[in-house]
Design a protein around this nucleic acid. Structure first.
Lengths: 205, 205
DNA sequence: GTCTATATGCTGATAGAC
DNA sequence: GTCTATCAGCATATAGAC
Protein backbone atom coordinates (compact mmCIF):
# COMPACT_ATOMS: atom_id res chain seq x y z
CA UNK A 1 0.00 0.00 0.00
CA UNK A 2 2.96 2.30 0.58
CA UNK A 3 3.11 4.93 -2.16
CA UNK A 4 6.57 4.83 -3.63
CA UNK A 5 6.82 7.58 -6.19
CA UNK A 6 4.71 8.87 -9.02
CA UNK A 7 7.02 7.49 -11.68
CA UNK A 8 6.46 3.88 -10.68
CA UNK A 9 2.78 4.52 -10.00
CA UNK A 10 2.39 5.81 -13.54
CA UNK A 11 4.17 2.71 -14.83
CA UNK A 12 1.80 0.41 -12.94
CA UNK A 13 -1.33 2.27 -14.00
CA UNK A 14 -0.11 2.37 -17.60
CA UNK A 15 0.65 -1.34 -17.55
CA UNK A 16 -2.84 -2.11 -16.34
CA UNK A 17 -4.55 0.14 -18.87
CA UNK A 18 -2.40 -0.79 -21.88
CA UNK A 19 -3.01 -4.48 -21.22
CA UNK A 20 -6.70 -3.87 -20.66
CA UNK A 21 -7.49 -1.55 -23.55
CA UNK A 22 -4.44 -1.43 -25.80
CA UNK A 23 -2.15 1.41 -26.77
CA UNK A 24 -4.50 3.42 -29.00
CA UNK A 25 -7.47 3.33 -26.66
CA UNK A 26 -5.49 4.38 -23.60
CA UNK A 27 -4.82 8.10 -23.20
CA UNK A 28 -2.20 9.66 -20.98
CA UNK A 29 -5.09 11.40 -19.25
CA UNK A 30 -6.60 8.00 -18.38
CA UNK A 31 -3.31 6.89 -16.90
CA UNK A 32 -2.72 9.92 -14.73
CA UNK A 33 -6.37 10.04 -13.69
CA UNK A 34 -5.94 6.53 -12.30
CA UNK A 35 -2.84 7.60 -10.38
CA UNK A 36 -4.42 10.86 -9.29
CA UNK A 37 -1.64 13.09 -10.56
CA UNK A 38 -1.09 15.55 -13.35
CA UNK A 39 -1.15 14.58 -17.01
CA UNK A 40 2.09 16.42 -17.77
CA UNK A 41 4.01 13.99 -15.57
CA UNK A 42 3.86 11.30 -18.22
CA UNK A 43 5.94 13.46 -20.49
CA UNK A 44 8.19 14.57 -17.69
CA UNK A 45 9.14 11.00 -16.73
CA UNK A 46 8.91 9.18 -20.04
CA UNK A 47 9.12 11.95 -22.63
CA UNK A 48 6.41 10.40 -24.82
CA UNK A 49 3.49 8.01 -24.47
CA UNK A 50 5.18 5.75 -27.02
CA UNK A 51 8.35 5.49 -24.91
CA UNK A 52 6.31 4.65 -21.83
CA UNK A 53 4.62 1.90 -23.78
CA UNK A 54 7.89 0.50 -25.11
CA UNK A 55 9.27 0.28 -21.60
CA UNK A 56 6.29 -1.72 -20.37
CA UNK A 57 6.14 -3.88 -23.45
CA UNK A 58 9.83 -4.85 -23.29
CA UNK A 59 9.47 -5.62 -19.61
CA UNK A 60 6.50 -7.95 -20.15
CA UNK A 61 8.13 -9.61 -23.11
CA UNK A 62 11.37 -10.18 -21.24
CA UNK A 63 9.43 -11.70 -18.36
CA UNK A 64 7.52 -14.17 -20.49
CA UNK A 65 10.49 -15.07 -22.63
CA UNK A 66 12.89 -15.74 -19.74
CA UNK A 67 10.17 -17.74 -18.08
CA UNK A 68 9.69 -19.90 -21.17
CA UNK A 69 13.35 -20.78 -21.52
CA UNK A 70 13.78 -21.33 -17.80
CA UNK A 71 11.12 -24.02 -17.64
CA UNK A 72 12.28 -25.91 -20.66
CA UNK A 73 15.85 -26.19 -19.43
CA UNK A 74 14.77 -28.45 -16.61
CA UNK A 75 13.28 -31.02 -18.96
CA UNK A 76 15.00 -34.32 -19.49
CA UNK A 77 12.78 -35.99 -22.08
CA UNK A 78 10.46 -34.69 -24.77
CA UNK A 79 7.22 -35.77 -23.09
CA UNK A 80 8.58 -34.30 -19.91
CA UNK A 81 9.27 -31.05 -21.74
CA UNK A 82 5.79 -30.89 -23.24
CA UNK A 83 3.84 -31.47 -20.08
CA UNK A 84 6.13 -29.39 -17.88
CA UNK A 85 6.11 -26.54 -20.36
CA UNK A 86 2.36 -26.45 -20.89
CA UNK A 87 1.67 -26.73 -17.17
CA UNK A 88 4.03 -23.90 -16.32
CA UNK A 89 2.82 -21.81 -19.24
CA UNK A 90 -0.80 -22.16 -18.15
CA UNK A 91 0.03 -21.40 -14.55
CA UNK A 92 1.90 -18.26 -15.54
CA UNK A 93 -0.82 -17.00 -17.85
CA UNK A 94 -3.57 -17.76 -15.34
CA UNK A 95 -2.20 -14.98 -13.15
CA UNK A 96 -2.21 -12.61 -16.11
CA UNK A 97 -4.89 -13.72 -18.50
CA UNK A 98 -4.78 -10.71 -20.79
CA UNK A 99 -1.05 -10.87 -21.42
CA UNK A 100 -1.18 -13.12 -24.52
CA UNK A 101 -3.64 -10.84 -26.26
CA UNK A 102 -1.61 -7.79 -25.32
CA UNK A 103 1.61 -9.20 -26.76
CA UNK A 104 0.11 -10.70 -29.90
CA UNK A 105 -2.01 -7.67 -30.57
CA UNK A 106 0.88 -5.25 -30.46
CA UNK A 107 3.09 -7.55 -32.52
CA UNK A 108 0.47 -7.92 -35.24
CA UNK A 109 -0.31 -4.22 -35.39
CA UNK A 110 3.19 -2.84 -35.11
CA UNK A 111 5.93 -3.96 -37.46
CA UNK A 112 8.58 -2.08 -35.52
CA UNK A 113 7.93 -4.28 -32.51
CA UNK A 114 8.27 -7.38 -34.68
CA UNK A 115 11.66 -6.20 -35.83
CA UNK A 116 12.58 -5.56 -32.22
CA UNK A 117 11.67 -9.15 -31.31
CA UNK A 118 13.56 -10.55 -34.23
CA UNK A 119 16.74 -8.80 -33.15
CA UNK A 120 16.35 -9.19 -29.41
CA UNK A 121 15.01 -12.74 -29.26
CA UNK A 122 14.95 -14.79 -32.44
CA UNK A 123 18.54 -13.99 -33.37
CA UNK A 124 19.84 -14.26 -29.79
CA UNK A 125 22.12 -17.07 -28.67
CA UNK A 126 19.66 -17.92 -25.95
CA UNK A 127 16.96 -18.67 -28.48
CA UNK A 128 19.28 -20.62 -30.75
CA UNK A 129 20.42 -22.75 -27.82
CA UNK A 130 16.84 -23.21 -26.75
CA UNK A 131 15.86 -24.41 -30.20
CA UNK A 132 18.86 -26.73 -30.45
CA UNK A 133 17.99 -28.32 -27.12
CA UNK A 134 14.42 -28.88 -28.23
CA UNK A 135 15.63 -30.29 -31.51
CA UNK A 136 17.84 -32.79 -29.67
CA UNK A 137 14.93 -33.91 -27.50
CA UNK A 138 12.80 -34.44 -30.62
CA UNK A 139 15.49 -36.27 -32.57
CA UNK A 140 16.17 -38.60 -29.63
CA UNK A 141 12.52 -39.71 -29.59
CA UNK A 142 12.37 -40.02 -33.37
CA UNK A 143 15.37 -42.36 -33.30
CA UNK A 144 13.79 -44.37 -30.49
CA UNK A 145 10.72 -44.67 -32.71
CA UNK A 146 8.38 -43.30 -30.06
CA UNK A 147 7.21 -40.31 -32.11
CA UNK A 148 6.73 -39.54 -35.79
CA UNK A 149 9.19 -37.31 -37.60
CA UNK A 150 8.12 -33.78 -36.78
CA UNK A 151 9.77 -30.38 -37.03
CA UNK A 152 10.54 -28.90 -33.60
CA UNK A 153 9.10 -25.63 -34.90
CA UNK A 154 5.79 -27.37 -35.59
CA UNK A 155 5.73 -28.81 -32.10
CA UNK A 156 6.46 -25.41 -30.59
CA UNK A 157 3.77 -23.83 -32.74
CA UNK A 158 1.21 -26.41 -31.66
CA UNK A 159 1.92 -25.73 -28.02
CA UNK A 160 1.88 -21.97 -28.39
CA UNK A 161 -1.19 -21.90 -30.65
CA UNK A 162 -3.31 -23.99 -28.33
CA UNK A 163 -2.15 -22.32 -25.14
CA UNK A 164 -2.28 -18.73 -26.34
CA UNK A 165 -5.63 -19.17 -28.05
CA UNK A 166 -7.12 -20.53 -24.85
CA UNK A 167 -6.38 -17.27 -23.09
CA UNK A 168 -7.14 -14.96 -26.00
CA UNK A 169 -10.59 -16.49 -26.36
CA UNK A 170 -11.35 -16.46 -22.65
CA UNK A 171 -13.58 -13.38 -22.75
CA UNK A 172 -15.51 -15.05 -25.56
CA UNK A 173 -16.01 -18.24 -23.59
CA UNK A 174 -17.05 -16.24 -20.55
CA UNK A 175 -19.75 -14.28 -22.35
CA UNK A 176 -20.93 -16.97 -24.74
CA UNK A 177 -21.64 -19.45 -21.97
CA UNK A 178 -22.19 -16.99 -19.11
CA UNK A 179 -19.48 -18.34 -16.84
CA UNK A 180 -18.20 -16.87 -13.59
CA UNK A 181 -14.59 -16.94 -12.37
CA UNK A 182 -14.86 -20.49 -11.09
CA UNK A 183 -16.37 -21.68 -14.36
CA UNK A 184 -13.60 -19.97 -16.29
CA UNK A 185 -10.90 -21.51 -14.13
CA UNK A 186 -12.39 -24.99 -14.55
CA UNK A 187 -12.50 -24.44 -18.28
CA UNK A 188 -8.85 -23.37 -18.35
CA UNK A 189 -7.79 -26.41 -16.34
CA UNK A 190 -9.79 -28.76 -18.55
CA UNK A 191 -8.33 -27.23 -21.68
CA UNK A 192 -4.81 -27.61 -20.30
CA UNK A 193 -5.22 -31.34 -19.68
CA UNK A 194 -6.89 -31.88 -23.04
CA UNK A 195 -4.17 -29.96 -24.89
CA UNK A 196 -1.40 -32.00 -23.30
CA UNK A 197 -3.17 -35.22 -24.30
CA UNK A 198 -3.80 -34.01 -27.83
CA UNK A 199 -0.20 -33.03 -28.45
CA UNK A 200 1.42 -36.09 -26.90
CA UNK A 201 -1.02 -38.39 -28.68
CA UNK A 202 -0.73 -36.38 -31.84
CA UNK A 203 3.02 -36.78 -32.22
CA UNK A 204 3.14 -40.43 -31.14
CA UNK A 205 3.78 -43.01 -33.77
CA UNK B 1 -13.71 -1.33 -62.55
CA UNK B 2 -17.09 0.26 -63.07
CA UNK B 3 -17.75 2.80 -60.31
CA UNK B 4 -21.08 1.98 -58.79
CA UNK B 5 -21.87 4.58 -56.17
CA UNK B 6 -20.02 6.24 -53.37
CA UNK B 7 -21.93 4.41 -50.66
CA UNK B 8 -20.62 1.00 -51.70
CA UNK B 9 -17.19 2.44 -52.44
CA UNK B 10 -17.02 3.76 -48.91
CA UNK B 11 -18.05 0.36 -47.61
CA UNK B 12 -15.29 -1.36 -49.58
CA UNK B 13 -12.60 1.12 -48.55
CA UNK B 14 -13.72 0.95 -44.93
CA UNK B 15 -13.67 -2.84 -44.99
CA UNK B 16 -10.13 -2.82 -46.30
CA UNK B 17 -8.88 -0.28 -43.77
CA UNK B 18 -10.72 -1.65 -40.74
CA UNK B 19 -9.32 -5.11 -41.43
CA UNK B 20 -5.87 -3.70 -42.09
CA UNK B 21 -5.54 -1.28 -39.18
CA UNK B 22 -8.50 -1.87 -36.88
CA UNK B 23 -11.32 0.43 -35.83
CA UNK B 24 -9.40 2.85 -33.61
CA UNK B 25 -6.54 3.44 -36.03
CA UNK B 26 -8.78 4.05 -39.03
CA UNK B 27 -10.24 7.53 -39.39
CA UNK B 28 -13.19 8.48 -41.55
CA UNK B 29 -10.80 10.82 -43.34
CA UNK B 30 -8.60 7.83 -44.25
CA UNK B 31 -11.60 6.02 -45.67
CA UNK B 32 -12.88 8.87 -47.81
CA UNK B 33 -9.37 9.76 -48.94
CA UNK B 34 -9.05 6.24 -50.34
CA UNK B 35 -12.35 6.61 -52.18
CA UNK B 36 -11.55 10.13 -53.29
CA UNK B 37 -14.69 11.72 -51.95
CA UNK B 38 -15.68 13.99 -49.11
CA UNK B 39 -15.33 13.03 -45.46
CA UNK B 40 -18.88 14.13 -44.62
CA UNK B 41 -20.29 11.37 -46.80
CA UNK B 42 -19.50 8.75 -44.17
CA UNK B 43 -21.97 10.41 -41.85
CA UNK B 44 -24.46 11.05 -44.60
CA UNK B 45 -24.65 7.37 -45.55
CA UNK B 46 -23.95 5.63 -42.26
CA UNK B 47 -24.69 8.29 -39.65
CA UNK B 48 -21.66 7.35 -37.51
CA UNK B 49 -18.32 5.64 -37.94
CA UNK B 50 -19.45 3.06 -35.40
CA UNK B 51 -22.53 2.14 -37.45
CA UNK B 52 -20.41 1.76 -40.56
CA UNK B 53 -18.13 -0.58 -38.67
CA UNK B 54 -21.01 -2.64 -37.31
CA UNK B 55 -22.37 -3.12 -40.81
CA UNK B 56 -19.03 -4.42 -42.10
CA UNK B 57 -18.38 -6.55 -39.06
CA UNK B 58 -21.78 -8.28 -39.20
CA UNK B 59 -21.30 -8.91 -42.89
CA UNK B 60 -17.88 -10.54 -42.41
CA UNK B 61 -19.06 -12.57 -39.48
CA UNK B 62 -22.11 -13.81 -41.36
CA UNK B 63 -19.90 -14.79 -44.27
CA UNK B 64 -17.45 -16.81 -42.20
CA UNK B 65 -20.14 -18.39 -40.07
CA UNK B 66 -22.33 -19.53 -42.96
CA UNK B 67 -19.23 -20.85 -44.66
CA UNK B 68 -18.25 -22.91 -41.61
CA UNK B 69 -21.62 -24.59 -41.27
CA UNK B 70 -21.95 -25.15 -45.01
CA UNK B 71 -18.75 -27.16 -45.22
CA UNK B 72 -19.43 -29.35 -42.25
CA UNK B 73 -22.85 -30.40 -43.48
CA UNK B 74 -21.30 -32.29 -46.37
CA UNK B 75 -19.23 -34.51 -44.07
CA UNK B 76 -20.16 -38.12 -43.61
CA UNK B 77 -17.62 -39.30 -41.04
CA UNK B 78 -15.63 -37.56 -38.31
CA UNK B 79 -12.24 -37.85 -40.01
CA UNK B 80 -13.91 -36.66 -43.17
CA UNK B 81 -15.32 -33.69 -41.28
CA UNK B 82 -11.97 -32.77 -39.77
CA UNK B 83 -9.94 -32.83 -42.95
CA UNK B 84 -12.64 -31.28 -45.11
CA UNK B 85 -13.28 -28.55 -42.57
CA UNK B 86 -9.64 -27.62 -42.04
CA UNK B 87 -8.92 -27.66 -45.77
CA UNK B 88 -11.87 -25.43 -46.57
CA UNK B 89 -11.14 -23.18 -43.61
CA UNK B 90 -7.53 -22.68 -44.68
CA UNK B 91 -8.53 -22.06 -48.28
CA UNK B 92 -11.05 -19.44 -47.23
CA UNK B 93 -8.67 -17.64 -44.89
CA UNK B 94 -5.84 -17.71 -47.41
CA UNK B 95 -7.80 -15.28 -49.55
CA UNK B 96 -8.31 -13.04 -46.55
CA UNK B 97 -5.43 -13.56 -44.19
CA UNK B 98 -6.23 -10.71 -41.83
CA UNK B 99 -9.82 -11.71 -41.22
CA UNK B 100 -9.18 -13.92 -38.14
CA UNK B 101 -7.30 -11.18 -36.36
CA UNK B 102 -9.96 -8.64 -37.27
CA UNK B 103 -12.77 -10.77 -35.85
CA UNK B 104 -10.97 -11.94 -32.73
CA UNK B 105 -9.59 -8.52 -31.98
CA UNK B 106 -12.96 -6.84 -32.07
CA UNK B 107 -14.58 -9.61 -30.06
CA UNK B 108 -11.94 -9.42 -27.34
CA UNK B 109 -12.03 -5.64 -27.12
CA UNK B 110 -15.75 -5.09 -27.40
CA UNK B 111 -18.13 -6.85 -25.04
CA UNK B 112 -21.18 -5.58 -26.94
CA UNK B 113 -20.09 -7.52 -29.99
CA UNK B 114 -19.68 -10.66 -27.89
CA UNK B 115 -23.26 -10.31 -26.69
CA UNK B 116 -24.33 -9.81 -30.29
CA UNK B 117 -22.62 -13.08 -31.28
CA UNK B 118 -24.12 -14.93 -28.38
CA UNK B 119 -27.62 -13.93 -29.41
CA UNK B 120 -27.18 -14.16 -33.16
CA UNK B 121 -25.05 -17.28 -33.39
CA UNK B 122 -24.51 -19.35 -30.25
CA UNK B 123 -28.19 -19.39 -29.30
CA UNK B 124 -29.41 -19.88 -32.89
CA UNK B 125 -31.01 -23.12 -34.06
CA UNK B 126 -28.41 -23.32 -36.79
CA UNK B 127 -25.60 -23.52 -34.27
CA UNK B 128 -27.41 -25.98 -32.05
CA UNK B 129 -28.05 -28.24 -35.04
CA UNK B 130 -24.47 -27.86 -36.12
CA UNK B 131 -23.22 -28.88 -32.70
CA UNK B 132 -25.62 -31.83 -32.49
CA UNK B 133 -24.43 -33.10 -35.87
CA UNK B 134 -20.81 -32.87 -34.76
CA UNK B 135 -21.65 -34.59 -31.50
CA UNK B 136 -23.25 -37.47 -33.41
CA UNK B 137 -20.16 -37.85 -35.58
CA UNK B 138 -17.96 -37.96 -32.48
CA UNK B 139 -20.17 -40.39 -30.57
CA UNK B 140 -20.29 -42.73 -33.55
CA UNK B 141 -16.51 -43.00 -33.60
CA UNK B 142 -16.28 -43.36 -29.84
CA UNK B 143 -18.69 -46.31 -29.97
CA UNK B 144 -16.71 -47.85 -32.82
CA UNK B 145 -13.65 -47.50 -30.60
CA UNK B 146 -11.67 -45.58 -33.21
CA UNK B 147 -11.20 -42.46 -31.08
CA UNK B 148 -10.90 -41.67 -27.40
CA UNK B 149 -13.80 -40.07 -25.55
CA UNK B 150 -13.54 -36.37 -26.31
CA UNK B 151 -15.92 -33.45 -25.98
CA UNK B 152 -17.01 -32.10 -29.38
CA UNK B 153 -16.34 -28.61 -28.01
CA UNK B 154 -12.73 -29.57 -27.35
CA UNK B 155 -12.34 -30.89 -30.86
CA UNK B 156 -13.82 -27.71 -32.31
CA UNK B 157 -11.56 -25.59 -30.13
CA UNK B 158 -8.48 -27.51 -31.25
CA UNK B 159 -9.34 -26.94 -34.89
CA UNK B 160 -10.15 -23.28 -34.45
CA UNK B 161 -7.18 -22.57 -32.18
CA UNK B 162 -4.64 -24.08 -34.54
CA UNK B 163 -6.17 -22.64 -37.69
CA UNK B 164 -6.84 -19.16 -36.43
CA UNK B 165 -3.48 -18.85 -34.71
CA UNK B 166 -1.72 -19.78 -37.94
CA UNK B 167 -3.19 -16.74 -39.64
CA UNK B 168 -2.95 -14.39 -36.69
CA UNK B 169 0.75 -15.10 -36.35
CA UNK B 170 1.48 -14.83 -40.08
CA UNK B 171 2.97 -11.31 -39.90
CA UNK B 172 5.23 -12.56 -37.11
CA UNK B 173 6.43 -15.53 -39.13
CA UNK B 174 7.00 -13.29 -42.14
CA UNK B 175 9.17 -10.79 -40.29
CA UNK B 176 10.94 -13.19 -37.95
CA UNK B 177 12.20 -15.38 -40.76
CA UNK B 178 12.15 -12.82 -43.58
CA UNK B 179 9.83 -14.71 -45.89
CA UNK B 180 8.23 -13.49 -49.11
CA UNK B 181 4.73 -14.34 -50.34
CA UNK B 182 5.79 -17.71 -51.69
CA UNK B 183 7.53 -18.62 -48.45
CA UNK B 184 4.47 -17.61 -46.48
CA UNK B 185 2.17 -19.68 -48.69
CA UNK B 186 4.40 -22.74 -48.32
CA UNK B 187 4.39 -22.25 -44.59
CA UNK B 188 0.60 -22.03 -44.49
CA UNK B 189 0.24 -25.20 -46.56
CA UNK B 190 2.73 -27.08 -44.40
CA UNK B 191 0.96 -25.99 -41.25
CA UNK B 192 -2.38 -27.11 -42.63
CA UNK B 193 -1.14 -30.65 -43.32
CA UNK B 194 0.62 -30.87 -39.97
CA UNK B 195 -2.46 -29.63 -38.09
CA UNK B 196 -4.71 -32.23 -39.73
CA UNK B 197 -2.26 -34.97 -38.79
CA UNK B 198 -1.91 -33.73 -35.22
CA UNK B 199 -5.64 -33.59 -34.60
CA UNK B 200 -6.53 -36.90 -36.20
CA UNK B 201 -3.63 -38.64 -34.49
CA UNK B 202 -4.37 -36.81 -31.27
CA UNK B 203 -7.91 -38.05 -30.89
CA UNK B 204 -7.20 -41.63 -32.07
CA UNK B 205 -7.25 -44.35 -29.50
C1' DG C 1 -26.13 13.23 -53.59
C1' DT C 2 -22.00 15.77 -52.89
C1' DC C 3 -19.72 19.48 -51.51
C1' DT C 4 -17.55 23.41 -48.14
C1' DA C 5 -17.23 25.17 -43.83
C1' DT C 6 -17.18 24.66 -39.27
C1' DA C 7 -18.38 23.20 -34.38
C1' DT C 8 -16.78 20.74 -30.62
C1' DG C 9 -14.01 17.83 -28.19
C1' DC C 10 -10.06 15.19 -27.09
C1' DT C 11 -5.30 14.02 -27.87
C1' DG C 12 -0.08 14.37 -26.65
C1' DA C 13 3.33 17.63 -25.71
C1' DT C 14 5.64 21.89 -24.00
C1' DA C 15 6.71 26.21 -21.20
C1' DG C 16 7.04 28.08 -17.12
C1' DA C 17 5.42 29.05 -12.08
C1' DC C 18 6.10 27.13 -7.61
C1' DG D 1 9.30 17.00 -8.77
C1' DT D 2 4.72 18.58 -9.48
C1' DC D 3 1.69 21.75 -10.86
C1' DT D 4 -1.22 25.15 -14.21
C1' DA D 5 -1.94 26.84 -18.55
C1' DT D 6 -1.93 26.37 -23.13
C1' DC D 7 -0.76 24.93 -27.88
C1' DA D 8 -1.33 22.66 -32.22
C1' DG D 9 -3.31 18.82 -34.42
C1' DC D 10 -6.65 15.67 -35.61
C1' DA D 11 -10.92 13.30 -34.75
C1' DT D 12 -16.15 12.83 -35.74
C1' DA D 13 -20.19 14.99 -36.65
C1' DT D 14 -23.38 18.61 -38.38
C1' DA D 15 -25.40 22.68 -41.10
C1' DG D 16 -26.23 24.43 -45.13
C1' DA D 17 -24.92 25.77 -50.18
C1' DC D 18 -25.25 23.80 -54.68
Amino acid sequence: MAKKNLESEIMLAAEKLFIEKGFEATSTTDITKMVGCNQALVNYYFRTKEKLFQKIFSQKLEHIWSFMTLESNKSISLFDFISRFINAYFEELTTNKKLPFFIINELVINQERRKFIREEIILSDKFQNYYTTLNNLVQAEVKKGTIRDIEPSDLLLHIISLTVFTFISLPLYEDFFLKDDVGVQNYVNDRKEEIIILIINGIRK
